[in-house]
Design a protein around this nucleic acid. Sequence first.
DNA 1: CAGGATCCTACATGATACTG
DNA 2: CAGTATCATGTAGGATCCTG
Lengths: 129, 129
Amino acid sequence: MRDLMTDRIEQWKARGFDPNNCPVRMVLDHVAAKWTSLILLELEKEPQRFNALGRALPDISKRMLTQSLRDLERDGMVRRKVYDTKPPSVEYSLTDVGLSFMAPFSQLLDWAEKNQSQILAARSGYDKS
Amino acid sequence: MRDLMTDRIEQWKARGFDPNNCPVRMVLDHVAAKWTSLILLELEKEPQRFNALGRALPDISKRMLTQSLRDLERDGMVRRKVYDTKPPSVEYSLTDVGLSFMAPFSQLLDWAEKNQSQILAARSGYDKS
DNA sequence: CAGGATCCTACATGATACTG
DNA sequence: CAGTATCATGTAGGATCCTG
């Protein structure tokens, strides 16, 4: 793996790597953002409507829910379907791309859960000294 | 996988899930931060000294390089070794935890590279309408 | 060489109020 | 119900200068 990763970096640099305009970061930004990955997790359970999502993520504001959903929709990871009823109802669901993201993402979550105690230990050790 | 992920969320919520104090986010923050994951990638190639890292990541400021390295050291992902020479020399390397992180992380990078063209296409389609 | 200390700004997010 | 609009703020990150 070492060599593969090394090659990867060399390739990026060869193409004129710019961390502010990086195709990988454009993906990582979803992981980074405060709510997007949680929204994806919720939508993986089942397609849900706007306010249902809001209730599932109790601390999110409508503002951030809207914005996060727009970001995900823009990148083709979430599909927005409007039913022309009254009052309107809007259902959000994962696209195939969004669903395929869950595989590597859940690997990362696994790693996080497995290593969190060690990390917390290292952290408090560091903070004491 | 669906059920596993669903269970995971339910467990988090049962424990009183708080996105501002989330053990998983504490890990994701490294992915999120602008430089930490790039630093890990560089250190995976080989242990390196402070200024060597700075040259490998041309756009990083000394301030952020220092801070990112401290964060990673604090979490036990990077080891800092000071050689008492004159002028001083400091070598940074991955710990076992840091190295083990590269496996799930590189899966995420794979996904990002495989899907970036689709995502960019979705994005420009969205922006046009 | 490997940083520490300061100052500053931009942007991500939150709070609140309003609407078709 | 599903948003939009506006204002407020905390903080990540950059720029610059200094030091053992």
